[in-house]
Design a protein around this nucleic acid. Structure first.
Lengths: 284, 284
DNA sequence: GGGCCGCGTTCGGGAAGACCGTATGCTCGG
DNA sequence: CCGAGCATACGGTCTTCCCGAACGCGGCCC
């Protein structure tokens, strides 16, 4: 029969649309690029409609492809939901987060989720941001918790794939701190790419004398020892502020959003989960 | 990947569940029984759950199978809907009806449908009742128009598959008629299996002297020529009553329901269509 | 401008699966 | 006790899946 739409083809299509390249999608699917390319072409043949424009830089969705993407995602989710319902298999949700957040802020979010949806198995993966965003598109994680700011994903200063949707589920305050009698310069920053570093760049530009260190923890340590000031997240300096090891330097402390990000088009399947993660607990 | 649910398997499963036998499903699918059997077993293996109890008389759904059936139908309909949305293909609905109704009462129903849903292509198939019911289960027709009575499908006196749902969209009055100066006996009835005949049997039982003829039209002709009385549907005798060729014999004329029947579990995909067929027209 | 890299695709081949026709075992109804 | 109807096992053909390797293409950098 013509146009029978094999789900295998649809899975490949979604992966390619998400990754933007056949190669990337093949990686995510654990297949060879040749196979993925064939599946996509077979889907196009079955539908009788071109889904991608082939460019030497990747695959761009055609009008028909865009039409299909959301529905294809929903269809795959539907199939998954049917399978779960019949096998009685528990639903498994994978949420990723930046390492820093996985250790500090994610537990509260996951606890909220587990309390409100005890039927869910929640996996946690801790990844650097770019890997996180890649896994989001590739389906390795269902949702990701990261730091950001502004009205869209990436406003903080990183490149995000399009077609991501988000919800802010909390705030992180940044505090400019130094040792009570330590130096005020240079500005101690973590390595490029770190969310806190991006925030520091946005706040101070490039003109302030800076010293780049490997991590937030290192920057805090150097500040504590009096080698400069540093812009650090509240949860990293609470103890030191309380003990007096660090003091705030009264500066317009910008707040970052604790942002839950997921691939647009999967609202249907994720809505209840996202809701359970973002809402305040019913009691208390 | 395990448990990936091929839609091909699901199609076979639904067909088998509908037909009750692998052989019947294979017929409907245009496949060999061996192939269908294999697909179903593969689906069961993929889900890790038995879907049927095998008996020498056919296949009976297990608990898991029943769980799956409705969802599987919905999933297939979803896939179809996605395909249509992307290809821009018009939706095609096949409605079947008893021959008698296809000629007399179906046009009004189809007109109603076409006016309210001009985006639909409506096919009409005219079949005897048992073939109609078989096609309903097999998917050859999406909905069927037939005559029935009472609170469930088949109450009029025929065997209907379970898992059919229905909506009464009109009535057919039965009139006991004879020629003005013709004989009153015997009771002229159409051949066994005809809906009108079933109604006559229910009304008069087997005790009345009867003469069996091949069709409703024949029975009417014999009555017109004075060879007995006959229980006939209103649309078949309107002209003769008006002209005086036949006269009503004042009897508690039972009314039959003009009944729209469809496979339970496809409401999701058919709801709008059924609604458009059953509602009175918005204007007038 | 000439390598060079990453892209999608083509090609040949091996393995899995779809499908067929036939044969077998099973249980009913006659 | 036999035949009808059922699901299934078996052997075979053809399609599809998937791979690794090679090809053609367009940017990019020295």
């Amino acid at each position: 029969m013509l146009g029978a739409m094999d789900l295998r083809h649809v899975r490949c299509f979604v992966a390619v649309a998400g990754a933007g390249t056949v190669t990337g999608a093949a990686h995510g699917l654990g297949l060879a690029p040749a196979s993925v390319s064939e599946q996509v072409r077979r889907l196009e043949a079955g539908l009788g409609v071109p889904l991608f424009e082939r460019t030497p830089r990747g695959m761009r969705l055609t009008r028909h492809g865009s039409e299909l993407l959301g529905r294809a995602q929903a269809l795959l989710d539907h199939a998954e939901e049917v399978r779960r319902a019949v096998t009685g298999e528990r639903r498994r949700v994978t949420v990723g987060a930046l390492e820093m957040l996985a250790a500090t802020r994610l537990p509260a979010v996951v606890r909220r989720l587990s309390e409100r949806r005890p039927d869910l198995d929640v996996d946690v993966r801790s990844l650097p941001r770019q890997a996180l965003l890649a896994e989001l598109s590739g389906g390795g994680v269902d949702a990701a918790l990261l730091l950001d700011a502004g009205p869209e994903v990436g406003t903080l200063g990183f490149d995000a794939p399009p077609d991501l949707d988000f919800l802010d589920v909390g705030e992180v305050a940044l505090v400019l701190v130094a040792a009570p009698d330590g130096d005020r310069d240079p500005l101690l920053v973590s390595s490029a790419g770190c969310s806190i570093r991006l925030a520091a760049d946005r706040l101070f530009g490039a003109q302030a004398p800076r010293r780049e260190l490997t991590s937030v923890a290192t920057a805090r340590e150097w500040a504590r020892q009096g080698f400069g000031r540093s812009l650090l997240p509240d949860f990293a300096v609470e103890a030191d502020l309380a003990s007096g090891a660090l003091v705030p330097l009264g500066h317009d402390a910008p707040r970052l959003a604790l942002r839950l990000v997921w691939p647009r088009g999967r609202e249907e399947a994720l809505r209840d989960v996202l809701y359970a993660m973002s809402e305040p607990r019913p009691s208390r």
